[in-house]
Design a binder for these strands. Structure first.
Lengths: 118, 118
DNA sequence: TGACTAACGGCACATATGTGCCTATAAATT
DNA sequence: AATTTATAGGCACATATGTGCCGTTAGTCA
């Protein structure tokens, strides 16, 4: 589906949400696999995103300037005996797009404005 | 199941077989994933070995002195954008054990020796 | 011969990243 | 309003290596 330039699709909002949670937890960067785990934790059974989709979306977001990435120092991955990670940070543009898109957390029924009351 | 010291289990024979095919094809070393592909090619549908089993068997064979391994130069894996490989070679002991164990490729009915004719 | 035990190998899962193919759908165009 | 088109995201698979748990079975010993 096409997209209105500058807008975020739901998956992108989820990524920025989970990314910001991770960045607020003493981490300065996050990587894709870690992001998927965080999204699972946040969304539970609602998380149905395949890794292929996630990594493709991360690439797209980087191209759009919402994220920036750099590869992990290979000697660290080597020392820990695992594949290299690709680290992401959220850019100013990413944070701004998130703030603009995220609202509507949950409509509180006690405060539904009656039509014409605004 | 216990094993008679010095003998090879079927999976080990298959590994040495596939390894020797690869080594005869201009390669000086082989890695686990490549070995699995070669075993699939040689055995077709008969290949049912999970990667977990294969890698554990490779480790066991190295400990037994049948194989030797070394890690790939990390800069190469990095340049090719894939996980590092662990390269294996077959030792003299490995080759000897294979020669001793491999016979019985297929009993040729034309040459079944009659008892007492040896 | 029967009981014990070491270990082989199957299954599921972990660690990380990515591509190819296809369908559903939202935006743009006529 | 109907059609076209770009693209988001699902599914399968590729690349490599490994660990944890458990059942089955072969070898050993009494």
């Amino acid at each position: 589906m096409r997209r209105k330039p500058g807008s975020l699709v739901p998956l992108e909002v989820s990524i920025l949400e989970a990314g910001m949670v991770l960045l607020s937890q003493s981490e300065t960067v996050f990587h894709g696999y870690q992001l998927a785990k965080e999204m699972k934790a946040l969304q539970g059974a609602a998380f149905r995103t395949a890794y292929g989709t996630l990594y493709r979306t991360l690439e797209r977001m980087e191209q759009a300037g919402l994220l920036e990435s750099h590869w992990e120092d290979p000697t660290i991955a080597e020392a820990e005996g695992r594949p290299r990670r690709r680290f992401y940070t959220i850019t100013g543009a990413g944070e701004a797009a998130f703030q603009a898109a995220k609202p509507v957390p949950e409509t509180n029924p006690l405060f539904v404005p009656r039509p014409g009351t605004t």
